[in-house]
Design a protein around this nucleic acid. Structure first.
Length: 349
DNA sequence: AAGCCGTGGCA
DNA sequence: TTGCCAAGGCT
């Protein structure tokens, strides 16, 4: 279908329905947003809801207002500030990217999609989004929303992820040369508020007249997705080791799950059916009566919390004041474990 | 190239 | 309660 039909209709809708967001300028504005703010928001928004991002975006922009300020920040301060937002490799890449921009690009984000793509943490979607939104370049921007909107618009029967190439080609076909940033954001707003994953509101959709899936009455059948595998169950034990008003924290290895984050010491987390070792813990421990339950992307965890005193006078890690534990930047699973330990401590048995 | 990588809201 | 999913990137 013609570029003008879809893009003009969508931009008209966006002019009236654009959401006000802290990193946005108004639709049709001649003012372009700060590329640093665009980049910050796009990294935070990767697989993360707008509602979850907003307070973190405000906090980061207030504390590190420029890419130079962020590049000069301590790693631990950035990881701590990111705590709770999830996907912690993003925080490490955020810092690496800021430092690369300062050192290799004179403190300015490059107005070039392929150069952006080479920066840490910036993939095809984010490179296109920054190019279009911050620099007004005619990039093809495809995120999960756009995949859904376009797969319905053209009733694409190929299942994801094999459909990606076709969806990108179709998106490029409707991307206008004018207002590419507004077009990208309009597609994402439409996907978030109208062309929703479940129960799409086709009655209020400006594109329904162009939409093949709507014509067939099967909008909610797209995009076609493969069946997903069952989520494994794992279990483990976290240790609340307290001495003189302080609790022992460790820093997890930089790579892997919760990489680079402060944590309670733990056993390995093993498959639920594996041979147990909880009955062979050395020393004397009081195990919290209620285990912590936490769902990660690719496994579910049941975590016992074992409380005790330091078995050895010197242990590797940080002795963190219990009264200031909220400032340690613990990922949510360990914040839950700490809460369980503290509840148990105040009401033993 | 398919698996890894968090969290919270919602039906 | 359980499953689904959200502005993906990295290896």
């Amino acid at each position: 279908m013609a570029v003008e039909n879809v893009s003009h209709t969508l931009l008209n809708w966006y002019d009236r329905h654009a959401r006000q967001l802290p990193w946005r300028t108004p639709p049709g504005s001649n003012l372009r947003p700060d590329p640093y703010a665009v980049w910050m928001s796009e990294i935070m928004l990767q697989q993360t809801t707008v509602a979850a991002v907003i307070p973190y975006f405000e906090k980061f922009m207030a504390r590190w207002p420029t890419v130079a300020a962020l590049a000069a920040a301590d790693d631990t301060d950035v990881m701590t500030a990111w705590a709770g937002l999830g996907y912690y490799s993003r925080a490490r890449n955020l810092l690496a990217c800021a430092r690369t921009v300062v050192e290799r690009h004179d403190g300015h984000f490059p107005p070039d999609e392929s150069v952006l793509l080479a920066l840490p943490g910036i993939g095809p979607y984010t490179a296109g989004a920054i190019a279009a939104i911050a620099f007004g370049l005619p990039a093809t921007v495809v995120d999960g929303n756009v995949e859904r909107v376009v797969s319905r618009l053209y009733a694409v029967n190929i299942p994801l992820p094999a459909a990606r190439a076709e969806l990108r080609r179709l998106t490029a076909g409707i991307t206008p040369a004018v207002r590419p940033g507004d077009f990208a954001q309009a597609m994402m707003d439409l996907g978030a508020t109208v062309c929703a994953p479940r129960a799409p509101r086709c009655l209020g959709c400006p594109l329904s007249v162009h939409c093949r899936a709507h014509a067939a009455g099967t909008a909610d059948a797209f995009p076609v997705k493969p069946a997903k595998r069952a989520r494994p169950e794992r279990r483990g034990t976290a240790f609340w080791i307290e001495r003189d008003g302080h609790v022992l924290l460790v820093t997890r290895p930089a790579r892997g799950l919760l990489g680079g984050m402060r944590a309670l010491p733990t056993t390995d987390w093993v498959d639920k059916d594996a041979d147990g070792l909880s009955e062979t813990l050395p020393g004397q421990w009081q195990v919290a009566s209620t285990a912590v339950r936490h769902i990660f992307t690719h496994f579910a965890l049941t975590l016992d919390v074992a409380m005790g005193n330091a078995p050895h006078p010197e242990m590797p890690g940080e002795w963190w004041p219990v009264d200031n534990l909220h400032e340690a930047g613990l990922p949510t699973v360990f914040a839950k474990a700490a809460a369980a330990a503290l509840a148990e401590r105040e009401q033993p048995c």
